[in-house]
């Protein structure tokens, strides 16, 4: 299930105008995007990569880049011209339109821009509000919401547009644990290609089929969560999921690696290989 998107980065170098240091260095990766988790310390280039894919980096700061990026065989710029990209920024309050009296209006904003009919807009807004636990807030002013609720509103406004690629930059930082749980549960079931930069390593391990590890602008590794965590098992800079650390401490493996999800941990403890 799900739409898979082929992405091809070839020798992408990028630096911000006026800075010598490269924000992205020789980024080369050919991959299918289903649910990709982007991890790494701050200043790694995660936000840069997301903004770059969304085609908005130059609006933030002028850049000099070389190399190519292709999505589904098309050059990024051409692909973006005919597709709907969704980008959720780190600071949720600043991405709201500022023109909406109510949460409903805020979510509907992009839908009016798409030229949809009132009935369709009503339907979509209700559906999206339900997915992100915002149905009780539809009549409230966006300014009355808490930080976590605003984050959910920002996400709702983007997913209502049914984007062809969803890019999320640390979208759950201000959410409470329950809110975060619901969000990742929704993300797992969604049928849209996603790249999410986040430090919630347990949730990423449960939801993502792929992790890209960035550090200092360089792609350290891209692969399945299990392979990544095994490779970086001794690296103190990379967080590991609780299941993995527990498996490591208890000495049980699943399928040749320490478990990365709750399910794998259970199976590993039950009949996995013990060290």
């Amino acid at each position: 299930m799900g739409n898979h998107l082929q992405v091809a980065f070839d020798q992408v170098n990028l630096n911000y105008a006026g800075f010598d240091e490269l924000a992205l260095k020789k980024l080369t990766l050919h991959s299918e995007i289903n649910k990709v988790g982007l991890i790494g310390p701050s200043h790694a280039g995660k936000s840069t990569l997301l903004y770059l894919l969304a085609g908005v980096l130059d609006q933030v700061i002028p850049t000099e880049k070389s190399g190519t990026i292709a999505l589904d065989g098309q050059d990024l710029v051409n692909w973006l011209a005919s597709k709907q990209i969704g980008l959720v920024l780190q600071d949720p309050a600043s991405q709201l339109s500022g023109m909406a009296d109510t949460v409903f209006d805020e979510i509907a904003f992009g839908l009016y821009n798409q030229g949809l009919e009132e009935a369709e807009i009503e339907k979509r807004v209700q559906a999206v509000a339900q997915k992100l636990d915002l149905e009780d807030f539809l009549d409230q002013a966006p300014t009355a919401l808490s930080g976590g609720q605003i984050q959910r509103l920002a996400i709702a406004s983007i997913i209502a547009l049914k984007p062809d690629l969803l890019l999320l930059d640390d979208p759950t930082s201000q959410m409470d644990p329950l809110g975060r749980q619901h969000f990742f549960a929704w993300l797992k079931e969604s049928d849209c290609p996603v790249i999410i930069a986040s430090s919630e390593i347990d949730d990423l391990a449960e939801v993502c089929d792929q992790l890209w590890v960035l550090e200092d602008g360089e792609l350290q590794m891209a692969g399945k969560p299990a392979d990544i965590f095994m490779k970086f098992a001794n690296d103190q800079e990379i967080a590991k999921p609780a299941a993995f650390l527990m498996g490591e401490k208890m000495g049980c493996k699943f399928d040749g690696h320490y478990p990365v999800t709750a399910d794998e941990l259970m199976k590993a403890a039950a009949y996995g290989n013990h060290d």
């Binding site: 310390p41 701050s42 930082s173 430090s199 390593i201 103190q236 800079e237 967080a239």
Partner: peptide, 9 residues
């Protein structure tokens, strides 16, 4: 909040 993993440590 907002700290990366090494900073949290």
């Amino acid at each position: 909040m907002c700290l990366d993993y090494p900073s949290r440590q």
